[in-house]
Write a protein that binds this DNA or RNA. Structure first.
Lengths: 202, 202, 202, 202
DNA sequence: TATGAATGAGGTTTCATTCAT
DNA sequence: TATGAATGAAACCTCATTCAT
């Protein structure tokens, strides 16, 4: 029983170390990009030796993939579609927050890095592709769903391209966030509040 | 006079060499990213020696900056706003074309690379910022302009956020292009043809 | 008295542990060589932690030396010269067996590794040298010994170079074993049965 | 024509550099073994930077293979079988010379290193195997050849195992050379002069 | 103008060894 | 006694940049 407890404790510790490394890596990747961030800088940021990282990740690429997975997981968790959420308000509110390096949620700069890298790395491309497919389906469900249950009752014929537009708008907004983190919120709010409802109505 | 001619000829040659280098660099940057692309690969692609590149560019970063400038210039030239262009048709038509490495125009993958790098490199950030400002102003002009002269006669109060939305949509579409270059064109066409007009009407 | 018993038991246990480590190390050294075999792989093979090995051996080099000693001990034990053994038959029979990693006796690959390392490490060189001297003396004794007592009755003048030839042939055969483990046994048998008797006769 | 000359000169220079690197590598490999010799030490010995080596060899393993090939080539060149050479005299004379690091010919320590590595690296094993096959065939030819033409006129039935014995003896002698470079030459000479003739006569 | 050999700093990764538990 | 996390040195290798030719 004691060995079982100890093994569990060790596993927890290992999980914490992985977390620590991923947090450090994320900071470094945001600050310098996947390629320019060095293992040494990640180790420094994590407050450990570079060699130790290899006890928890096979190589640098494994860290990149783990970061990508984690970010996509965050994105998925952020999708709260089964209730009538006010997308315009939420997007306005979140705007600019995901750009800071210390931000907890999905990071805009990282999304760019991931997308750029996906054009080169098949594994990252596959991960993004899977995410895209999942998200698109969820959006269509949400758009065509019964309004009583939080859906929008759109006909199945038009839902797909509304979903596409929402996705493009969301990502375009993320990209803009990296370029104009201090964009006038009032302007953004007006824009989104006028436009998004159009996409949700039949 | 002859020296002047010769000097001019030399300048032209220099300009051609710079072009050759930039074309090669662009291919490499698209294929591998700013950091992973090596000077050797650029030299190879350009069909010249690595050393020679340094006669035309101070260092690798100067090439990156030149590429960024060139891309933004392309984007500016692509903006044909002083006539009533069919944005929806144009965007649909161009979709997927800017992803190929050999594409002449703005390249979607490069846009991502540039945007990502802009969060790190102040010079690139400044260049993109300048581009953003210019483009936004041009869009507002176009939206508020006299319909007779190719404008859309929007009130000055709403033009700014319509411009913002157009920009986000455009960039979101570019990002999507890198992820789904084979997206169903009919779907895209429907989406754009329904929605862009809404953004252009009072 | 009880402390004495316990201490003895502890010593036995320590000896067993050393054995376990050496067995594992031998496997690893055969598979990867002295330098390429890692302490981690030895620990894995021995089914213990890397740290524990250092309780029984000062460092990796001490393991190498212990392995060398053990192998030379095996070689010495294999020399059964005080009886009229059929060397040709024995060598033929053993050929190819000492190449497998799990072989109990002297391992051919290890002999090469040891000999190669001896040209660099003075301690290993000394161990091999001592073995060589011992073996040569034993061979001469055997060759000059009374035939009634298992010797071959060679004159003292020629015994030394017969011994040298036997040694070279034996080692050359070991070397060949690593290169052609599947050598035709009939060929080998013929060769040895014709040649070795010549070396043993006046 | 001038470009052709220049290209030839460049190729010659490249060949010289490869030579310089291989010479340095050989020294280091003899001194420390394939694994323990570092690229840095090779570079130091060759009087160049470590990076430069990679312009001439893809990686460290390519250097090892080149050394192996070169050594086997030396061995092949040393085989002068088409004349009635006095093997015993030649082997006696060469004994001990191939052990010095600065020796030009085949190096005994390297032969051990190569043989040991061949049990792990398939490419080296293949190279040695090819050499073995070639050598064995050449020996059989020599043994069965017409005495008038430098052969020994042995029947085809016994030549194969005489060849095998010669090969084992030769390699056993090489191994011994690393252990007893100062072996008494008179002893060796006697041994070889008595025995090798036995192997060459029907 | 043009080459490409050469460098040196810095990248990722491995591993013998130590030490808190 | 035993573990295995942790370190730091050193391994292999890459690449932007310089410079003699």
């Amino acid at each position: 029983m004691s060995t079982k407890q100890e093994s569990t404790k060790a596993q927890e510790r290992a999980e914490m170390q992985r977390h620590r490394i991923l947090d450090a890596a994320q900071q470094c990747f945001i600050a310098h990009g996947f390629h320019a961030a060095s293992m040494a800088s990640i180790a420094d940021t994590a407050g450990m030796s570079a060699g130790l990282i290899y006890r928890y990740f096979e190589n640098k690429n494994a860290i990149v993939l783990a970061i990508v997975d984690r970010q996509l997981q965050l994105l998925r968790e952020n999708i709260r579609l089964n209730r009538r959420v006010d997308l315009a308000a939420e997007w306005t509110q979140n705007y600019g927050r995901s750009c800071a390096a210390e931000a907890k949620g999905m990071n805009a700069a990282l999304l760019l890095e991931m997308s750029a890298e996906a054009t080169r790395d098949p594994q990252i491309a596959a991960a993004l592709d899977h995410y895209d497919t999942t998200l698109r389906a969820a959006l269509v469900d949400w758009l065509t769903g019964d309004p009583q249950a939080g859906g929008h009752g759109l006909p199945a014929a038009i839902a797909p391209y509304r979903a596409l537009l929402l996705q493009c708008l969301f990502e375009g907004l993320k990209l803009r966030e990296t370029r104009e983190p201090d964009l006038d919120r009032a302007l953004l709010s007006s824009a989104l509040h006028e436009f998004i409802p159009m996409l949700l109505k039949p």
